[in-house]
Write a protein that binds this DNA or RNA. Sequence first.
DNA 1: TCTGGGGTCCTAGGACCC
DNA 2: TCTGGGGTCCTAGGACCC
Length: 444
Amino acid sequence: MSRPRPVALIDGNSFYCSCERVFRPALLGRPLVVLSNNDGCAIARTAEAKALGIKMGQPWFEIRRLEREAGLVALSANFELYADMSDRMMAVIGQFGPDQHIYSIDESFLFLDGVAGRSGSSLAGYGQQIRARVLQWVGIPTCVGIGMTYTQAKLANHVAKQRQHWAGVCDLTAMPPGALATLMREVDVGDVWGVGRRFAPRLREVGIASALDLARADPVMIAGAFSVVLARTVRELCGTSCIDVGGDANAETIPRKQILSSRSFSRPLLEQGELTEALAEFAERAAQRLRAQGSRAGALQIFIRSSPFRQQDKPFSAAISTRLIPATQDTREIVRATQRALRGIFRPGIRYAKAGVMLYDLQAADVGQLELFPVGEPGRPDGAASRGRDPAALMQTLDALNARFGRGTVKLAGAGLEQGWRHRPERLTPAYTTDWAQLPIARA
DNA sequence: TCTGGGGTCCTAGGACCC
DNA sequence: TCTGGGGTCCTAGGACCC
């Protein structure tokens, strides 16, 4: 592998909640949660909300009483705002080093080689400078974890967040081995990056209960008994770099390999017609994202299912795949394919709770598309009828209108106009930073 | 007709992440 | 009444080929 380099993980504390607080300072110090798309469950909580016992992903109906009982504030997720705040935060962090990898909306890795000698400051001191500038310029509080691998940086970040005494920055690279072991012994194995809810109990069964236990485990045994991915985590914990997170801030955006659009419904759907409409909408959104990254899809899968949470409903889940020949980025073709696919798996008498459309086998739109009878070419059987119907131009117009006037301005009739199945957020804050009409200014 | 080893491609499903 | 919406990587097994 390459030579070891210290790397920091910088992430926003309760990121979505912190974004809301920037524009509503009255929320500081109050328990606050941000709810998922459907106002279904909590996807971000402030420290005050955590102190009330609210869990990540906890359903809203279970915690709603805390509004009255504890002054909990709940807001609908405003992803437009969070994406813009994220861009600002990442830009500020990017000023601190040339090699930044943006890992998620609120996290980025930053390589710190050469920093220690630069101003006589320690890596931890440098981390404090990053925190201070992000807080001052963007208004978002952060924590910083520093290690010799991504997994160590994640671990350090976890510790920095959990324990007050680190003041928001934990640097494992400066720690004597004994102290490092003590620290890792106190981190539960389930809190290690790469260990999920499936593997954690199985690891404990074989006596691996802490991050230290996992670091001392035999990677060969782990690869055999668990997975090669987890074996990499073991080596990363020991300081050997062996994973790659991508997200190089300087690189071209890497196109997705699959695109999934799915939603749960506000009420169970029983009719095939409603499901058809919902799937058309998902297909349309997926197709739009497909075009945005300049790809065509060679295959598509749909799934429909009942709620796994409602014991009284008959459990049902079905999926079906179909090829798109030739590969396409045309919304209409994709919608037609989902509807054919639905006819293949729809079963009456089921209370459908969720459905989705996945596009895969994605390929660049500008290569290898030699259709036998291109639209409008002489020789195409329907050549005469296809004049003025260039699908690429039509799709471009569709995307441009929706980008200019907001998602859903123009859509195909197949997606339905009623959309009684759609959840509507009820607690949405304004898009303060990205919409002129919603700027936070006093109005006459 | 039978035989074998080795390769590729595809798909489904499991595990993880935020 | 009420439980997110995205993604990635890896593996195993089957089909098919030489």
